[in-house]
Design a protein around this nucleic acid. Sequence first.
DNA 1: AATCGTTCCAACCGCCGGAGC
DNA 2: AGCTCCGGCGGTTGGAACGAT
Length: 207
Amino acid sequence: MQKGSSFGLRKGSWTEEEDVLLRSCVQRYGEGEWHRVPQRAGLNRCRKSCRLRWLNYLKPNIKRGKFQDDEVDMIIRLHKLLGNRWSLIAGRLPGRTANDVKNYWNTHLRKLMTCQGKPENEKPQDLVKVEVIRPRPRTISKNFTSLGVEAYRELNESREPRVHDVPPNRSPWIDDDFQLRSETTEAWLDCWSGLSFDAESIWDWPV
DNA sequence: AATCGTTCCAACCGCCGGAGC
DNA sequence: AGCTCCGGCGGTTGGAACGAT
C-alpha cells in the first residue's frame, strides 16, 4: 500500500526497520508525546501514523488471529448497547484494538446483522439513523484512573442512578430492552455490573 | 495459467474535544 | 473568548491475498 508522501513524510506500509525504531523509542520514552516520537525515533512519519502503528500493531499483548465465539458475542452485545463506539467495545476485549473490532464488524457482522429478519423492501438497519447515548465524561483529575460501580455510587450518594434518568426514546436498546427489564435501581446496577467501569466510561446521564 | 470478483485489514483522512495560552 | 496544538476517534480507502471461473 505504498502511497505518495506529502511534505516529505513517508506514508504507506511500515517496514521492519521502522517498526524497530518505533518500538525502541516507545520502550525508551514511554507512550505519549506522539508529536515528539518521529524526531526521537528518527522516523520520517507523522505523529498520527506513529501512534496508530503502535496502538494497532506493535503494542505488546495485542491478540492476533480469528475472533473467538465469545468475543463475537461480546461485540454484538456491546454494539447494540454502544453503537459504533469501537474504542469502548475494544476496551472490553483484551488484546483487541478498536481497528480490529471495527474491521471485523464491517467485514463479518454488519451484513449479518442487517439481513437478520429484515424484509427485502425494508431499509437496512445500519442505514437507519439511531441516536446512541454517548458517554459524557465528567471532569476528572489526572490522578483519577479507575472506578467501580460502587465507587461511582459513592461519588453520587446524594443521587443514585435511576432508570428514570434514562430519557425516553434515546435509543432502541433503551426503549425495547432496557426499560422492559425492571424499574429498580438494582436492575440498573446489575445491568452495568458486568462491565467494569474506567474513567472513560463514566458519564452523566442527560436529565 | 490467466482473469475476475471478493474478502481482509493496515493505514490514511478528517473531524472533534480538551488543554494551554 | 478565541486561537492553536495535541491526542483520540470513526469512517473510508486501497493493496494484498484468496477463491472461483
